[in-house]
Design a protein around this nucleic acid. Structure first.
Lengths: 330, 330
DNA sequence: ATGATTTTGGAAATCGGTTACGTAAAAGAT
DNA sequence: ATCTTTTACGTAACCGATTTCCAAAATCAT
């Protein structure tokens, strides 16, 4: 391993000079600069990133906290973030929190110790205090799909409520008369938003009441179970908005088993826009979120924040898109 | 931030002593140990991991190199690895290589600079030299689904060929007379193994020739396209082994479009055992790999290697399991 | 009680950089 | 030609640990 001292010795200058030249701070004669660069190349010198981290308190590393990478929503997001990170020479720590308070906390502690340059976080069980702490340590944060009252960090939010409105309206438009909702977890911001979007459109119907809403947990299986529940409660159901695609896939399976023809007897629409929805039978209509884009934007925002520490945080809202497929074509 | 000096000062000892006590090396009076520990607790002192890395040349970090986390095979693997890592207090760098030589290379360089403690790698375009270099830097490596002649690192391999044999035999057993293969990329080790497994069983039939093999790239779309190709070449095809589940899903879609009833007119089996196969219509039979387990084992092996630097590397082979579902039930 | 051996713990170098401060030389001003 | 300002670069402290080497103190042997 060649160190900055080797370079300095061979170039006949001090390590300070070499350091200055590498980071082009301060000034130096063109000749010195050239000579040092030549020797750096000759020796194949590369600054030790760990040593740099120690003084700079930066690590060229970003942490990505997600509930679990197993949920197909997140790999896409991670990929978007990683692509940007990679192009800036940053590495990514992958952290699965399972939405558990303790894991979130452990990660937040260990990440700060490692001088991460920023954190992208999508997780329940994230407190305002966590974020304050990061902020006070000068670590920029971008939250995904969460809102907080404080304005010390940026966030990216998808228009869940509007998306859910579009989905519900679409079912109404194609002639559905009894529309159920399979919602997500009660403490999940996105699930709540999507539920409101659904309610915005069905609340005026006199058939509507709470019993048209089944409580799922965003897993395929829960979509399946919730659909069975809805069939039992309301044999006359003819349309369902599943608040994510995985549940829509489960729902579809339940519909087949129950012998309901999709879309003719039961129209279906999901939310997220994961790849798989186009390959089910029939393909499932969905409200597509710009997942990859979100990852990209989050990372870009983080990079911006770390380059301009004094700049204001931003709240961004992303549009969703209705993707029409066979599951809701009549 | 409280440093080791703060602790030393308050305890009235030197930093050397504190360091020794923390890492319990050397000896110290029980009283001193107790006092220092008390003060550590009192001050909430935590050793700075970056500073530690600088001297130890270790980072408590493992890198995971995968082609792309977007492929649903890898999140599961990553999750297995992360769970183990997390329980040992290690963090994971997620690296998407897209199987590109340049990305692999860039990562390998930057990871070594960061003193990663080990690398789990699943990627084509990985050369023996890359591995040698890691080895000479004392960085343990576990490769997944790749074999190399050198024995300086561990590897975990799934019994692809046997799995493919089981799959093919299964199709024969249920009465398929004309069985096609949708294989994976030519330079992919797993794809080649699975192809051989298929050939092992069909080579004896006189109907068999190369035209029963379509070349896919492990994506859903390519499964779809390959199936169309096979239908055109062999309208009498009545069974297909798709060498991964994503392609099986694409294939299923093609079968529907082509009006072939699955499984009665066309039996289908995939490979991998990704979650989604149980939710398609019909659910797809598959050869299940222990994906999560693989990630776990890889990480455990890596930890073993880094704790016992002199120990021998291991080559492990994992069994696969035939999962029977409707797509191949007659 | 004295010398030999073992414990305990401190001083200082080290890991590989960055940076505040200072000084000598060069450039500019009068 | 002299004084001031600027430029170029070196010295040394520092980031926060670990570790080698060594001395003082404690324990043991005779």
């Amino acid at each position: 391993m060649t160190t900055i001292r080797d370079v300095a010795a061979k170039a006949g200058v001090s390590t300070a000079t070499v350091s200055r030249i590498i980071n082009n701070k301060g000034q130096a004669t063109p000749e010195t600069v050239a000579r040092v660069h030549a020797i750096i190349k000759e020796l194949g010198y590369k600054p030790n990133v760990v040593a740099r981290s120690l003084t700079s308190r930066k690590s060229n590393t970003i942490a990505l906290l997600v509930p679990t990478i197993s949920n197909p929503f997140f790999p896409e997001l991670a990929r978007g973030a990683e692509d940007v990170a990679n192009s800036y020479g940053l590495n990514i720590f992958l952290c699965n929190t399972d939405d558990e308070r303790e894991k979130v906390n452990n990660y937040l502690v260990s990440l700060q110790e490692r001088y991460v340059d920023g954190v992208i976080i999508n997780s329940l069980n994230l407190t305002n205090e966590d974020l304050k702490e990061l902020h006070s340590n000068g670590i920029p944060v971008v939250t995904l799909d969460r809102t907080f009252s404080t304005h010390e960090f940026s966030s990216i939010i998808v228009k869940h409520r509007i998306g859910a409105q579009v989905a519900t309206k679409h079912l109404i438009d194609i002639g559905c008369k009894r529309i159920g909702l399979i919602r997500g977890p009660e403490d999940d911001f996105t699930a709540v938003q999507r539920m409101w979007g659904y309610r915005d459109y069905v609340k005026e119907f006199d058939w509507f009441d709470q019993s048209w809403i089944a409580l799922g947990d965003f897993s395929v299986k829960s979509g399946y179970l919730c659909m069975k529940e809805l069939f039992q409660r309301h044999p006359d159901i003819d349309g369902v908005f599943a608040s994510n695609d995985l549940m829509a896939i489960g729902l579809l399976k339940a519909a087949h088993e129950w012998g309901r023809k999709v879309p003719d007897e039961l129209a279906i629409i999901g939310f997220d826009g994961i790849d798989m929805t186009q390959y089910t039978n029939p393909p499932i209509s969905t409200i597509k979120q710009p997942i990859y884009e979100m990852g990209k934007m989050a990372m870009e925002e983080l990079i911006r924040l770390s380059r301009e520490p004094e700049s204001d945080s931003r709240k961004m809202e992303l549009d969703v898109e209705l993707i029409l497929r066979e599951s809701s074509m009549r």
